[in-house]
Design a protein around this nucleic acid. Structure first.
Length: 410
DNA sequence: ATAGGGTTAG
């Protein structure tokens, strides 16, 4: 338990925390640690929700249930929610309330957050209400977690009401993060008038508008095509001494990638570097997309190939989007390369784009390449995908007779 | 570390 607590404190990223848990065996007795570690590794690649759950149980049973780790639990909860298996989610999360750590607020926060991921807002609220019973202190931390769960579950309409009710009832003083969550909820409700009066109220109460809050606002304005308002807000942010960070820049890049030319995106990326910021994979994904939308696919390829030397790693969106855009440009060779690189890293493309790629390869008489890709697909994709995929192979006449090397010659 | 940016489908 202490090991887990220390790991939580030391690692900010949930993924890092989880990886740390994977590599750590000190939390469990030597005999079970290797099998538990193997189970955790399997958990990452398992796509079936119910199988994930039993993998998680096998981790938990081998030592204390708390050792399963927050990231692992959230991963499984998200999968169960996707397959609408809410009773299993309830079992899983409620069993975690029996842990001694339930008296610690951050642990309760993790439970409220998990119910938020599952879309189970009533369970999240009940967990918050039960905190006295569990002997956990109730501060702005769990207050914020509950409001966030509302935003994540489509209950943003309830946030303004809960904000005032709960803070009064429990004597919680909302902080700058609470206000950021409230603003997010108003943005989701598109209540921009209320946003502006709230910003005024924050100024009067001397509550800081953080870069995160500004980013929420910028994102909403750009998505509503109010670019002029967004630019004004950007200047206001800078004039108030609030320096935009990578996420704030990416919101601007996102808009410019769609509505402007690659030069504007390049300019923003240069601005980021001048400001001492490091553009990330999201920034470059937009640059790639922008180049492709403007017919400059060769430039896009250069960006894709130079990602690693820029210290960025392509993510699932990189592979998926670029593959799609290349295929749309009928560059099926490049599309195939990007696709295969992604699959090898377990970043699997969607059904539609993969079908488009395969059809393009066959149409261009790249049958051997198509078959090579199919072998990789069969190795990496889950059974549910492959049963659907079989039709595509058949329709394209790409049945592969076991492992005969010279299928093409015939 | 409880908030923001991608992640849709095509």
């Amino acid at each position: 338990m202490t090991n887990v607590a220390i790991m939580f404190r030391r690692h900010r990223s949930p993924l890092l925390r989880y990886l740390r848990l994977l590599s750590s065996s000190s939390a469990s007795p030597p005999q079970t640690s290797s099998s538990a570690t193997a189970a955790k590794k399997k958990l990452r690649d398992e796509r079936d929700a119910v199988k994930s759950l039993s993998l998680l149980s096998s981790i938990s049973d081998s030592d204390s249930p708390a050792a399963a780790g927050r990231y692992a639990v959230e991963l499984v909860v998200k999968r169960l929610a996707k397959s609408r298996n809410f009773s299993e989610i309830e079992n899983l999360i409620e069993s975690r309330k029996k842990e001694p750590m339930i008296t610690q607020e951050p642990y309760v926060v993790s439970i409220i957050t998990a119910y938020g991921y599952a879309g189970m807002i009533d369970h999240a609220i009940r967990t918050f209400d039960e905190m006295d019973k569990h002997g956990a202190p109730r501060t702005v931390l769990s207050f914020n977690a509950l409001l966030t769960a509302c935003n994540h579950t489509g209950n943003h309409g309830r946030v303004p009401e809960l904000f005032s009710e709960i803070s009064q009832k429990h004597g919680i003083v909302p902080d700058k993060i609470s206000y950021g969550i409230l603003i997010k909820s108003l943005c989701q409700s598109r209540s921009m008038e209320k946003v502006y009066s709230l910003l005024k109220e924050m100024e009067e109460k001397d509550v800081e508008i953080t870069p995160v809050t500004y980013t929420t606002l910028l994102d909403t304005l750009y998505k509503d095509q109010k670019a002029a308002d967004a630019e004004r807000l950007w200047k206001e942010m800078e004039s108030k001494g609030c320096s935009p960070d990578v996420a704030a820049y990416n919101v601007r890049i996102m808009y410019n990638a769609v509505h402007s030319k690659p030069e504007s995106v390049i300019k923003l990326i240069d601005d980021m570097v001048s400001a001492g910021l490091k553009p990330d994979t999201i920034s470059y994904n937009y640059l790639i997309t922008c180049y492709c939308k403007n017919g400059q696919h060769e430039e896009a390829k250069k960006v894709y190939r130079s990602l690693r030397e820029k210290g960025c790693y392509p993510n699932a969106a990189t592979f998926r989007n670029f593959m799609y855009l290349l295929c749309k440009n009928k560059d099926f060779d490049a599309g195939r390369e990007v696709c295969m690189e992604g699959i090898k890293k377990n970043k699997l493309p969607d059904f539609g784009p993969l079908k488009m790629l395969m059809e393009g390869l066959v149409k261009n008489s790249k049958v051997e390449e198509a078959k090579q890709l199919i072998r990789l697909v069969r190795k990496k994709f889950p059974e549910s995908f492959l049963s659907r995929w079989k039709n595509v192979e058949e329709r394209l006449g790409l049945e592969i007779e076991d492992e005969l090397p010279q299928a093409e010659a015939a």
